[in-house]
Design a protein around this nucleic acid. Structure first.
Length: 482
RNA sequence: GCGGGUGUAGCUUAGUGGUAAAGCCCCAGCCUUCCAAGCUGGUCAUGCGGGUUCGAUUCCCGCCACCCGCUCCA
């Protein structure tokens, strides 16, 4: 079990070892933004790659995509995100509680128009008509396209990568030979103006998502929903997350987003925040909502031009009666049937998973009366796979060790170190989570063997230099299944 | 956004209205044949900006950031 109990300890660990730093720290920091350091960037990239490998590389039914962060504004009208602009928030001057204007109700003895705040009652403290000026609630980051200030268009940084997939659904259908059921996967940055950020990298306004949109025939969606639920849960377990720290939690009906028929969260028991269990990933049954919405959006494009490209004035047209034959429909050759597919969406947070893997791997143990700190990363995630040392800095050992390190680097992340006593070097690698260390000693000159030292057990084995690469590969690839 | 708390070296902690201290880490050298050894030397800090003061890390104000609890959010 990880000994860490406080978020402060995690933050400190991350900074000390070069995993995660506060963004713009030399300028006092920027709220909610973080940078990944030398070890952290490797770790995060490995998390990303592990996801991609299991979701795309290892499967015949999923293809990859890398869509742009900036998209046509109408995408966000269709998806429903742009309508968030219609939301205004006020704050009660008495109790400081914030409420959405459209959620406020009139006091019992009064009535007026929805916009008249003087009769509205604060749901928190029952004060009537004592609110601040309504403030627009901006979920999405805005930016301007076009260098000429007089000729720019307001664009939004995507609040989810999913819409890039829906917008390319037709392209992928037309350019590949995918057949339903199939998925499109994507990893990338998203941006949301969260009202509150919190808990280190757990909830930030800029974050990285790994999303799969898995398209299936209506009626098979429950099956795929359950399949993905299990698959995604096991992904974390197979990469070393302790089972007692992970769970699945089904959303209640009233908790569901407007587009979802079902949703389950993969939650990790973080050692911070209220309630401990925090969402790493959501698996949602988005039904045919998104593709149908985009079909409405496509048919609303004349409005976009007529209304002066003002998103707030565009009203999506009604859905066509034969929408199931629309441009984003799918034709099933076998069944000779055309329909809008249902979508199962496993949507994972890369930053959150990275943090969970880091926290879960952390361990302390007593060795000869002293504390050994280590990170028990799964080798697939470990920033450094193998470290190579000369036992001492003489007798040609450094040269031999360097040559070995150089040859291993072609195959995996490998680190060479000759500073200080070898015991200290082992412990340094424990802190970085390096699974295996190779030490060149006097035996190498004598009979060509080196010593391999294991992070988790501290045990050592003698291995022939000729067999070293195969040995290491075997250990790294078959971790856990002895 | 509200309330509370915190901010001294990479880390953990001292301390002071008058030269900012230590341990660990780190770096260099010596030594060293298997788990943070030893010796010598060395680098590095009062979050930012104002004010009071002869003098502010210390007192005051503002800002920034983080943590805890709400609120908000999916």
């Amino acid at each position: 079990m990880a000994k860490i109990t406080k978020l402060d300890d995690i933050v400190s660990l991350c900074k000390r070892r070069g995993f995660i730093f506060q963004s713009s720290e030399i300028y006092g920091g920027l709220a909610s933004c973080y940078d990944y350091g030398p070890l952290g960037s490797e770790l995060k990239r490995n998390v990303r790659q592990a996801w991609w490998k299991s979701m795309v590389q290892m499967r015949d039914d999923i293809v990859g995509l890398d869509s742009s962060i900036l998209m046509h504004p109408m995408v966000w009208k269709s998806s429903g995100h742009a309508d968030k602009f219609a939301d205004y928030i006020v704050e009660c001057k008495k109790c400081n509680a914030r409420s959405r204007v459209d959620h406020l109700e009139d006091a019992p003895d009064k009535s007026s128009t929805p916009d008249d705040l003087t009769t509205k009652v604060c749901p928190n403290c029952s004060e009537v008509g004592n609110f601040t000026e309504p403030m627009p609630f901006r979920l999405m980051f805005e930016t301007k396209m076009g260098a000429n200030a007089d000729d720019t268009m307001t664009l939004f940084l995507r609040p989810e990568t999913a819409q890039g997939i829906f917008a390319n659904f037709k392209n992928v259908l037309d350019s590949t030979r995918v057949k339903i059921p199939f998925g499109i996967a994507q990893i990338g940055k998203s941006f949301r103006n969260e009202v509150t950020t919190k808990a280190f990298t757990f909830r930030t306004r800029e974050f990285e998502q790994a999303e799969l949109e898995f398209f299936c025939e209506p009626g098979t969606d429950e099956y795929w929903y359950n399949t993905w639920k299990e698959t995604r849960f096991n992904w974390y377990i197979n990469l070393g997350i302790k089972k007692e720290n992970l769970r699945l939690r089904e959303h209640d009906k009233d908790e569901l987003a407007h587009y979802a028929k079902g949703c389950v969260d993969v939650e990790y028991k973080f050692p911070f925040g209220s309630g401990d269990w925090q969402e790493l990933e959501g698996v949602a049954n988005r039904t045919d909502y998104d593709l149908r919405q985009h079909q409405r959006g496509i048919r609303s494009m004349s409005q976009w031009y007529e209304k002066g490209r003002d998103l707030t004035k565009v009203e999506l047209v009604e859905e066509a009666p034969d929408y199931h034959k629309g441009p984003l429909s799918y034709f099933d050759e076998q069944q000779k049937k055309r329909y809008i597919p249902y979508v199962i969406e496993p949507s994972a947070g890369i930053d959150r998973s990275t943090l969970a893997f880091l926290v879960d791997a952390y361990d302390e143990e007593e060795v000869n009366g002293k504390t050994r700190n280590l990170l028990r990363f799964h080798p697939e995630l470990a920033p450094i796979k193998v470290a190579v040392f000369p036992l001492v800095k003489k007798d040609g050992m450094p040269e031999a060790a360097q040559a070995i390190a150089k040859s291993l680097k072609k195959h995996f992340a490998c680190f060479y170190d000759e500073k200080g006593a070898v015991g200290r070097r082992y412990r340094r690698q424990d802190e970085a989570g390096t699974p295996l260390c190779v030490t060149v000693d006097g035996d190498y000159k004598e009979n060509g063997t080196v010593t391999v030292r294991h992070r988790d057990t501290m045990e050592q084995e003698s291995v022939s230099g000729d067999q070293l690469l195969n040995y290491l590969r075997d250990k790294l690839e078959n971790w856990g299944n002895k």
